[in-house]
Design a protein around this nucleic acid. Structure first.
Lengths: 338, 338
DNA sequence: TTGTAAGCGTTATCAG
DNA sequence: CTGATAACGCTTACAA
């Protein structure tokens, strides 16, 4: 009668069954060169028959390198969710594994980072980290640290982000190409990101339309701020608006509809972030994408370069945003031929 | 001159500095009884001065019990994100730690489960698992398995979910209390969940309004299906609708507005899931909450009960949903006094 | 090519 | 109350 407490098979079990040493078995199972055909086949068979899987803790403990990338994320952010997917895929391709630790009510960023380090992660990819530049620099003292999606200047840490000013410029270019000349910008909350996007708007409008065409109204990062901004849009003739982000745009959209103005019939609207929200059939918002695929790959690459000694100086990877055109933008109403 | 390659301090370093054995140091650092005041203080000081943190792999490897709960989740689901938070908090309280492994393009449920097991998790909490009942039962052979949020009948696995029929019934009761008598149900996709919600609707309407008042129209789980259902709502006088879920409700909302009907002025609307979407100021949807806090706590409790031998029979925890009343429901128009 | 044996950093057992 | 010392399960020099 077999013991009711069936423990997982260990490497020694596989080795015994295959009639080889654990050393040989280990080499075979990790696909390392050395063992011959006979031994290889025997180990593979035995492993399969026993349903063997290596114990992660033991393996990590024994290994010199862990090839583990630690990622901190905000569980609530859909954008982070996408990044996680991409980071996973990119890491996979380079032979690295990923440990994600979610920020929650009970686990703040400091604690999450410690957990990651306790888990023997060799590098840290921090998604939109809230830690100060000094703290980041301090962390980077002992291992590669990559700040993803937040423009920080912290010596020793690599940064991967999308050019915010370029993103808004893309939106302006798109609208101008459609024939718009009265394009407003619904600003975001105070902060680096808003500043970058606003200046991107300013420069693009000045260049493509004219210095007097700049029209920034205060807004914010949330729907209600966007909705509130709608009343400020009435002062001047406006045929298109670019919002700080998708949530803000959603508020603008709703406010406009309440006003009886149709989108894009009366006014075109562009958001930022290309969130799943923007993709909803009923919202269908033209939006600027931060290209999570590129970001994830670049972040992993940055970490791995450092780990493999291919680079020792800091790097800031500035990615190009992509405008995703959907149904919320179109030609302006009553377009007059020149 | 200290070596530039500063490796983390080990337990032995702490012990040496404190002038005690590693055994004593270990006991102190884990807050176990035994060591006296002197030793205790010395170890604590040394540990602090060195910035010591235990190596997780080594600790897990050596420990008899790992007290690790493995959780699989769909990164894209905001509801899962909430559950993760709650599970984390609940586990914390019971002295357990949580390992989350996200389902992604490159990591399907089988692989995620294997990773979790390789990491020495003692129990599995699977959020809305897609595995078959047979597979779940198989997994549950060797450790506690809790299926969260999906009604599966798999011998050996515990289930934690919210009573779907009760949720819809709550919505019906709310609407009837407001004076509605013509309440439609916009159905979901084929499946267990839809069946449960639909029958909850049927029973409640029959009981509170009358057998002829039942009015189910086909819908689906997404916005477009909801929007399409709006045209079917015109056949009968309808003063309120309950949608299969929030996304479907969003489609209904949009369709109604396009029709020029106001919510809740002309028609009241209730969603299901209480997603962040429902909470948006511009949507403000009355919705049925699956109470993630309760679910998370119940799931952790179920796993821990099994692990600690407090229970050996299967259990299905059926939680009460909660109706979150927001701005999309109100009294019916032209209410005639009896 | 293959096996022996020494770690990896903790925890846990068991004498003292 | 404290300290050796043997696990834990795997990787990896080094030797055969």
């Amino acid at each position: 009668m077999p013991s009711t407490r069936s423990s997982r098979p260990r490497l020694a079990d596989v080795a015994a069954r295959a009639g080889v040493s654990t050393a040989t078995a280990s080499l075979v199972l990790r696909g390392r060169p050395g063992p011959g055909r006979r031994a290889r086949q025997a180990v593979l068979d035995a492993s399969h028959e026993l349903g063997y899987r290596a114990d992660r803790s033991a393996s990590l403990l024994a290994r010199r390198r862990t090839q583990l990338l630690g990622v901190s994320m905000d569980v609530r952010s859909p954008f982070h969710a996408e990044l996680i997917e991409e980071i996973h895929a990119a890491a996979d391709g380079l032979g690295y594994d990923v440990v994600v630790s979610p920020l929650t009510r009970t686990h703040d960023e400091r604690r999450v980072v410690e957990t990651l380090l306790d888990s023997r992660c060799e590098a840290l990819l921090l998604l939109a980290p809230g830690l100060s530049a000094a703290q980041l620099t301090d962390l980077a003292q002992d291992r590669p640290v990559v700040a993803v999606g937040r423009p920080v200047t912290a010596p020793g840490v690599d940064v991967v982000r999308v050019a915010d000013d370029r993103g808004v410029a893309l939106a302006v270019e798109h609208l101008v190409a459609l024939g718009h000349r009265d394009i407003a910008f619904v600003d975001g909350p105070s902060g680096t990101i808003s500043t970058l996007r606003r200046s991107g708007y300013r420069r693009a409008v000045r260049r493509l339309v004219g210095p007097d065409a700049v029209h920034v109204v205060p807004g914010g990062a949330t729907e209600d701020k966007g909705a509130a901004a709608v009343s400020l849009l009435r002062g001047r003739p406006v045929s298109a608006a670019i919002a700080f982000n998708d949530r803000c745009a959603l508020g603008v959209l709703d406010g406009l509809r309440r006003d009886g103005r149709s989108v894009p019939g009366d006014i075109s609207l562009v958001g930022y972030d290309d969130t799943p929200l923007a993709r909803l059939g009923t919202i269908d918002l033209t939006s600027v994408s931060q290209t999570p695929g590129e970001m994830g790959a670049a972040a992993v690459r940055a970490a791995v370069e450092r780990l493999e000694g291919a680079r020792s100086h800091d790097v800031e990877v500035l990615l190009e945003p992509v405008l995703v055109v959907r149904g919320s933008t179109g030609p302006p109403p009553n377009r007059t031929m020149p």
